[in-house]
């Protein structure tokens, strides 16, 4: 009897060990797919990366690394399309969807900046598709995810300005250039707002500030010069 008890216990231990072994083997297999996915990502083979990360997610849908890798792969594909000036709306929708799922399984802060950027791109793609798209919630979410995503601030300010809320737009541009003095677009757009209401002096102030911060930027250089010449002309004409 005692012998049987000892054997039963031994077999129980073996069963537990075998289960641990199977789990460990599955983990090891998943790890192999993860590694392959990451390698594919690094060399720009995004389709293969998607295949490998999807394999892992088929076995383990909550695998954070695989989900992040998949989201990154979609992101990279969408961004490549952006550069080719192709329609990217569907790609950014897919990317945002993966990041949204990722946010459920990943409590870390690591993926938030990229999720934030994906939302910015999605908002921009939606506007490109339809200028009347309601993208403000996406941009607010983007800024919430990454308060240093000045691209989303910039786009939000542009939309506000388009809606006539130029004061709010100016505040946002001013905030951007204060926090990120190398953000050329914010200088351009802020100067634009002043130029449109014929405040050439303020426009020159902003563009020249931008030109000083970014002397190599051709747009800022050009409009600084135009504003400067305009101011000179106005002085010569006695209008200023």
């Amino acid at each position: 009897m005692q012998c049987r008890v000892v054997y039963n216990r031994l077999y129980s231990i073996i069963e537990v060990l075998a289960a641990m072994f199977v789990v460990a083997v599955l983990c090891a297999c998943n790890q192999g797919d993860l590694n392959r996915g990451d390698e594919a990502l690094r060399i720009g083979d995004y389709d293969r990366a998607i295949v490998n990360f999807s394999k892992v997610l088929d076995m383990e849908p909550t695998n954070r690394d695989a989900r992040y890798g998949l989201a990154i792969a979609y992101y990279a594909i969408a961004e490549d399309k952006e550069r080719l000036k192709e329609n990217t709306l569907a790609f950014w929708e897919r990317t945002v969807r993966e990041f949204k799922i990722l946010s459920v399984v990943d409590s870390s802060e690591k993926s938030k900046p990229m999720y934030s950027t994906s939302l910015f791109y999605l908002a921009r793609a939606m506007l490109a598709e339809n200028a009347q798209s309601k993208v403000m919630p996406l941009l607010d979410r983007s800024i919430q995810l990454d308060p240093e995503n000045y691209f989303s601030y910039n786009l939000k300010a542009l939309i506000l300005a388009g809606q006539g809320d130029t004061d709010e737009a100016k505040k946002i541009y001013a905030y951007i250039v204060t926090r990120e003095p190398k953000f050329a677009s914010a200088y351009v757009n802020l100067g634009n707002l002043y130029w449109n209401v014929h405040d050439y002096e303020s426009a020159w102030d902003i563009w020249s500030m931008g030109h000083e911060a970014l002397p190599q930027d051709p747009v800022l250089a050009k409009w600084t010069r135009i504003a400067e010449d305009s101011l000179k002309a106005m002085v010569y004409s006695g209008k200023l």
């Binding site: 786009l155 130029w195 409009w223 106005m234 209008k239």
Partner: peptide, 13 residues
């Protein structure tokens, strides 16, 4: 020509 027809710089996103 600035005084007559001021250009509008392109907005940048």
């Amino acid at each position: 020509s600035l005084l007559l027809d001021l250009p509008v710089p392109a907005s940048e996103q």
